[in-house]
């Protein structure tokens, strides 16, 4: 049976709203991913900080903690920039790099801070990404269902 002109007009009129609803539902998945990455980074920080304190000393552990918090802020800013991409922003912003540069410059100027533990702490976010990627690869069903 052929579609009437009125029916096709209704279909066209409804489609942008449906698309918007689908898109906003799909964005929940993105927010969940962002939340998961940040929570995993915080959990890793909670495990690594006492270990560094135990094997080295409190000063090194605090340096690590400063770097790890920088990593969390970096991840959050990157997430916000990716969220804005295509919705007004034409390119991914560089504010997240500026945070890291600021912390590294402060670390190089202050005697209490050392560069290596801060940099390694910053790389905690990378461990999170690797853990997440491995989980997706090894447990594909969960990612397909979500």
């Amino acid at each position: 049976m052929e579609e009437t002109p009125q029916a096709s007009v209704d279909a066209i009129a409804e489609s942008p709203m449906e698309e918007e609803q689908k898109s906003s539902g799909s964005m929940d998945e993105y927010y969940a991913l962002q939340r998961e990455l940040i929570v995993t980074t915080l959990v890793l920080m909670g495990i690594i900080f006492p270990a560094v304190w135990f094997f080295y000393d409190l000063n090194v552990a605090l340096n690590y903690l400063a770097g790890a918090f920088t990593g969390v802020i970096y991840l959050r800013l990157l997430g916000k920039n990716v969220e804005k991409l295509g919705q007004g922003a034409n390119s991914v912003g560089k504010s997240q790099i500026a945070v890291f540069v600021g912390v590294m410059i402060i670390a190089s100027q202050l005697k209490q801070l050392s560069i290596l533990p801060i940099f390694l702490g910053f790389l905690t976010y990378k461990a999170t990404l690797i853990i997440y990627t491995l989980r997706i690869l090894l447990v594909p069903d969960r990612s397909a269902n979500s």
Binding site: E19, E20, K22, S23, G25, S26, M27, D28, E29, Y30, Y31, L33, Q34, L37, L75, L78, G79, V82, E83, L85, V92, Q96, I97, F100, F122, L123, Y125, K126, L129, Y132, T133
Partner: peptide
């Protein structure tokens, strides 16, 4: 595919984070 926006942005976030670490 606007309905796959979340998945695409999620993958983009991961790839950008991996790529940006090389610059870092």
């Amino acid at each position: 595919q606007p309905e796959a926006e979340g998945k695409i942005r999620g993958t983009l976030l991961l790839t950008l984070a991996f790529m940006e670490s090389l610059t870092i």
